[in-house]
């Protein structure tokens, strides 16, 4: 699979810096490592540009609701920066993209890719797992064994899973 072209995001080995053309910035950090990165970013944003920093343990409903409200009130020139584990960053990025924020207005720093959210097309539940790509996880919705596929939806912020043993004869 062409590394740059698959739907699976490739996070650069270096964390991005704040966009110098940003006029206002929202920084969201998940977990201790994510919050350390947002603190460093806050110091790097040029003086005079308003910065808001949100800190959360993970991308739960309350922080995503705050994010949604900030986007609704934002003016052009606003930028979003996300730092933390991949599953939280993808979930927050999905909220922003669905609200019309452009890829060009979002920068991400991913501190680990251990945890994934896996979407089951058979029952439509999403399961959080530490299984690797091409590994397996039981679906929390329908209990089927899911193969974790190298295919990621930006809108759902999740990997595709499909029944691992569908071709087995019982």
């Amino acid at each position: 699979m062409g590394a740059e072209h698959t739907s699976v995001p490739r996070w650069g080995s270096e964390w991005p810096a704040p966009d110098p053309s940003a006029r206002t910035v929202l920084l969201v950090g998940f977990g201790a490592r994510g919050c350390a990165i947002t603190a460093a970013w806050a110091a790097d944003v040029p003086a005079g540009r308003p910065v808001e920093v949100l800190a959360a343990d993970d991308a739960d409903e309350s922080v995503l609701a705050v994010l949604t409200a900030r986007i609704a009130g934002a003016r052009v020139g606003w930028r979003l920066m996300l730092a933390g584990p991949e599953d939280d960053v993808l979930a927050a990025r999905a909220v922003a993209l669905r609200a019309g924020v452009l890829d060009a207005e979002i920068r991400c720093a991913v501190t680990s890719t251990d945890r994934k959210r896996v979407y089951c097309p058979h029952c439509r539940a999403t399961t959080t797992t530490t299984a690797p790509v091409a590994g397996e996880t039981p679906c929390e919705g329908c209990a089927r064994r899911l193969h974790v596929y190298a295919h990621v939806s930006r809108r759902a912020g999740a990997y595709l899973g499909f029944m691992a043993d569908a071709e087995e004869v019982a």
Partner: peptide, 23 residues
């Protein structure tokens, strides 16, 4: 494939799982 999962993807992302075509 699944339209429900692929909706909202870029064209290149839709084709992410296809072997060979990207290279």
């Amino acid at each position: 494939w699944s339209m429900g999962f692929d909706v909202g993807m870029r064209f290149l992302e839709v084709h992410g799982p296809v072997p060979r075509v990207h290279e």
